[in-house]
């Protein structure tokens, strides 16, 4: 973990209430896709945890949805503004687990899968991606994602792609995979882990610190209590007690 000031290089709307922000500065503590950063939003006491969407030398991209007041403020931030961030948080995804990876993103849960998809591409593997959302308004970054992945889109209302949820989509498309990586709403992750044990889920929790000090984010697992911010946010599907 490192405390750094990152500069907003870009902050653009890419979907309904969804923004892509590029932050530049020292991001050398970010080691893996699936990690998160914890951002001080001026005027609010606690930091806002947001996944690393993608990263490289000197930059990190985040993809965020306006949910409450803090993320709403973030959406108005201008280029050039500095943000106080803790970077290099959480365990991240283990890309050695899959030969034939399936990525499953629900809604804004797509964020950490972008960097993960790129990491697989760098290994010479093009992963399958199932991207599910309520409607086409929540489906973003399609162009970039279809370059990196074998992309399957599904929506609850059928406004884009397959009509149905991610599990129905996986089944209907007869997707062949040996291990999956998922992020999205809790219910989706719960159903997914019950349908398929061979994968991992990236969880959310309200956090006090984001780096293991307060026990604010501890969940019960089959292997005892674990902190979403430290031992997680990525957990084996079979160890989470939903």
């Amino acid at each position: 973990m490192q405390n750094v000031n990152l500069k907003i290089e870009k902050n653009v709307k890419v979907g309904t209430d969804i923004y892509l922000m590029k932050l530049v500065g020292d991001t050398s503590s970010i080691k893996k896709p699936g990690e998160f950063i914890n951002i001080t939003v001026p005027g609010y006491y606690l930091r806002r945890p947001i996944s690393v969407c993608d990263y490289g030398t000197g930059y990190v991209d985040i993809l965020y949805k306006v949910l409450g007041l803090g993320t709403k403020d973030m959406s108005t931030f201008k280029e050039g503004m500095m943000l106080d961030c803790l970077v290099g948080l959480g365990n991240g995804f283990d890309i050695t687990k899959a030969q034939k990876p399936l990525l499953v993103g629900g809604g804004i849960g797509i964020a950490p899968l972008v960097g993960l998809a790129r990491a697989f591409n760098e290994k010479g593997i093009k992963p399958i991606l199932v991207f599910g959302a309520r409607s086409k308004n929540d489906i973003v970054l399609v162009e970039q994602l279809s370059e990196l992945c074998d992309l399957h889109v599904c929506t609850d209302d059928g406004s884009l792609g397959f009509k149905g949820n991610v599990i129905e989509c996986i089944k209907a498309s007869n997707l062949d995979f040996d291990y999956y990586y998922s992020c999205g709403p809790q219910k989706m992750l719960e159903f997914l882990s019950k349908a398929y044990p061979n994968g991992c889920v990236s969880l959310e929790a309200r956090m006090g610190c984001g780096f293991g000090a307060c026990m604010g984010c501890s969940i019960e697992t089959t292997k005892g209590p674990k902190r979403v911010c430290k031992e997680g946010p990525v957990f084996e599907a079979t160890e989470v007690i939903f």
Binding site: R206, M207, G216, I219, E220
Partner: peptide, 17 residues
């Protein structure tokens, strides 16, 4: 193990745990 989640709520100038 402690209490169920959520265990944290933000407040003006502080937090509830």
């Amino acid at each position: 193990y402690g209490n169920k989640l959520p265990r944290i709520a933000e407040c003006p100038s502080g937090l509830i745990n």
